[in-house]
Simulated scan of single mutants.
Amino acid sequence: MYTRFNASQSVELAVPEERVPIQHYLRQPRRLVNALVDRSRTEQLSDDCFRLKMRSLQFMMLSIQPTVDMRVWAQPDGTINLESVACEIRGVGYINDRFALNLKGQLCVQQKSSRVTYLKGKADLEVEVELPPPFWLTPKPILEATGNGLLKSVLLSVKQRLMHQLLLDYRRWASSETGIISSDIPQILSVEG
């Protein structure tokens, strides 16, 4: 029985003004990947492709650990695009052979006034999987609600890490680029989800 799960997450956050604009920082996809996922769980495959080893996830009585190959590239205006290009589920061969993951995301810079810059982004995650026979007796609405909830929690976790890590890393990077050290902690002005 094939089942499809979906989730979307958006984010908008204010970027504190630094001497080096955030667009320059975002032209380095590796920095964004490090803000999204702990460095110990990433491997750079090429200039714009990264392998992300996700934490184990619990879906009903299954424990799965996805490994996602993600293409991350910057456009000249500083917009970052993310797209999954491959996925492997470790530990459950049956699921791995019948599993498709599609993740697309974008993070762009918006100048709302001469002094306020925002990062605005959205990620869409879809999983299609043929569940093993024991799940066939579970009502489809329960499976879908559980799967959609799991994907939403994954995206929410990524969003929270992005909101905290990206701005902190940008602040450190801008200070090192200009030789200025600031003790201010970046403030997040607005978030939507």
Score class of each variant (00 low, 15 high):
Y2T: 05
R4M: 13
A7F: 07
S10F: 03
E12D: 14
E18Q: 15
V20S: 13
L26N: 14
R27N: 07
P29T: 13
R30Y: 10
R31D: 02
L32Q: 10
V33G: 09
N34S: 12
D38A: 15
S46E: 15
D48V: 11
K53L: 09
L57Y: 10
Q58M: 11
Q58L: 05
M60A: 06
S63P: 00
I64Q: 03
T67R: 05
T67V: 15
V68F: 06
W73T: 05
Q75P: 00
L82C: 06
L82M: 11
I95Y: 05
N102I: 08
L103G: 01
C108A: 12
V109S: 05
Q111W: 04
S113K: 09
V116S: 13
T117E: 11
T117Y: 10
Y118R: 14
E128S: 12
L131C: 12
L131N: 05
P133Y: 06
K140S: 14
L143Y: 06
L143H: 02
A145Y: 03
T146G: 01
L155D: 07
L155E: 10
R161Q: 15
R161W: 03
L162F: 09
L167T: 01
R172C: 03
S176M: 08
G179H: 01
I180T: 05
I180V: 13
L189D: 15
